[in-house]
Design a protein around this nucleic acid. Sequence first.
DNA 1: ATATTACACTAAAACGTTTTGGTTGTCAAT
DNA 2: ATTGACAACCAAAACGTTTTAGTGTAATAT
Lengths: 340, 340
Amino acid sequence: MATTIKDIAQRVGKSVTTVSRALNDYNDISPQTKERVRQAAIEMEYRPSVLAQRLQKQRTDTIGFVLPTFGPRFSDPFFSEFLAGIGNRATQLGFDLLVSTRTPGEEELSAYRNYVQERRVDGFIIVRTRKKDDRIDYLKSANYPFVAFGRVKENFDYPFVDEDSEFGMGLVVEYLIRLGHRKFGVIAPPMNLMFSSYRLKGIRMKIEEAGLALDENLVVTSDLTQRGGYIQAQILLGVPDPPTAIVACNDLMAFGAMSAAQEKGMIVGKDVSITGFDDIPMAEHSHPPLTTLHQPIYKIGGMLSEMLVKLVLNEDLKKRQVILHPSLIIRQSCGPPPQN
Amino acid sequence: MATTIKDIAQRVGKSVTTVSRALNDYNDISPQTKERVRQAAIEMEYRPSVLAQRLQKQRTDTIGFVLPTFGPRFSDPFFSEFLAGIGNRATQLGFDLLVSTRTPGEEELSAYRNYVQERRVDGFIIVRTRKKDDRIDYLKSANYPFVAFGRVKENFDYPFVDEDSEFGMGLVVEYLIRLGHRKFGVIAPPMNLMFSSYRLKGIRMKIEEAGLALDENLVVTSDLTQRGGYIQAQILLGVPDPPTAIVACNDLMAFGAMSAAQEKGMIVGKDVSITGFDDIPMAEHSHPPLTTLHQPIYKIGGMLSEMLVKLVLNEDLKKRQVILHPSLIIRQSCGPPPQN
DNA sequence: ATATTACACTAAAACGTTTTGGTTGTCAAT
DNA sequence: ATTGACAACCAAAACGTTTTAGTGTAATAT
């Protein structure tokens, strides 16, 4: 059996209380006693039982993260990195990370309810916010701590980090217009996602600002996967007068679009320009390397962990709501539109 | 405050013990009492406190998973899917999954030591086994439950799942030889990884069986990332008499190799053939789609969770050591070698 | 001489379960 | 009438901490 505080108490001939207070550096314990207790703890290789601590503190020291996925096979480089960001920061702060994956919907919400009722986690990190978001409504009503990556349509009076997608997409479109493009295809995320609106809005605004029009028939939506991007790009490139530039709303869909174009014998960056969003590591080494918007995914995960932990510990966060500005990373997937 | 067993006891006018035993369906409680207790529990929305249960049971109901990564930015589709497999099965079995990421080495091992000493998890799942594996040596010596994805060089008398890489690579090489290839390049994983040996061995054997020779100068190692595959393929394709087929030891490196070839103006599947290993979802939608070996990654994760949970609960596993056979998925990244 | 304060320590309760080792009452067998 | 078996229940201990609400002693202030 592992050493307990009781064993130490016996060894140094003091009470359990004293040992506990010595280890926690209370100032009603004499320096000598503290020293003796600490020594003993080291010698006996004492490690507090997290289980006991948690029961007593009525805190789980655990962050909950329910990953929304479609189908069980989940394989998204964006989330891998995001996860690492959350997890590593949480560890530094002495918190565990409890991960599970759910398909959005009723089953997902009941996962939240379960975790709350069983008091299994101290709070949640929510990603891919929806315009009308059940999860957020629920957690608010249950008065349970959470932070989100993303805003919602109304009442976003909760702590969040979000990137300014509208601004980001503006950068992309501006760049494409400068290259000479006039006809755009857009592969948008599912419309119920909040960032879908922002990204679309950013695209529309810049196009209109330039006195151009976005052909609504060339705006398609897909599911943020590579396969989805592939399928939708096939459609976009198959119409009579196809777009010269395809703006995909994340990198994975952009890769899919590249495959579709290449399969048609087109050279990406010459016959058609394609852009992404996220700047996942793979974007640098695709063929051609992808022009995209950079978000500090790993860092964002870390920020969210930190905010949530502060929330749970009732410390106050200096910034409750953070909006980041993505930067345009120009690589080789774009060029001037083909002449004809 | 949440309802406790004490509240129920009060309500039904029985002792705490009786309530506990009723809920756990002991047979020294009368059917009527059981029924009344259950009713009350439902009405009062009782949920047992996992914290208290864990303390009492001296079990954390938690699986530990320390993901080996190089650098903090970790973005590997293989692991995303693997993680989902472990996590979802664990949840079904009533276990939590505690994830953290570490760079292999001293710091990694001390993460294991910490988790063990603090009794934070009931057991571990280990991946990417090394020929001589510290983690396994340690857990064995500490007599702590674990299961591994992969074998080690000696004494693999522990529970594991592994795929037969040797066999798999045999399939690939056989196929390439049948297509007419005589000159192979290999992008191998870091040599300290156990599956590195198996895969290399499988390649060598089949080549020699066919009466050919593997040019050792065309065997390079890399770090299993896309960038790594890209860099090494540049080298392989830059030598005076380059290989006509490149066998990469995972899909990510294969993608990198494809980019490198394409950047040189080569058409993959025609000017050069490239193969991978894993069959991650992206393999189907790359350009060209990748010929690779399929492993049921998600399922393997699930098997490992299940084995570990049984181990922890002292149930016996019907199979302690499982070896799976990958299947060859032929897509468009390979073809006959170019004539010249 | 007495009250006050500071210091160093501690017994007991609490967190919410499960398990141990009973007790009590009833009925059937001797 | 006594013994044994059984059903139904329960008090207390245990898991390992932290917190509460003290106690006793010595030094200092009145």
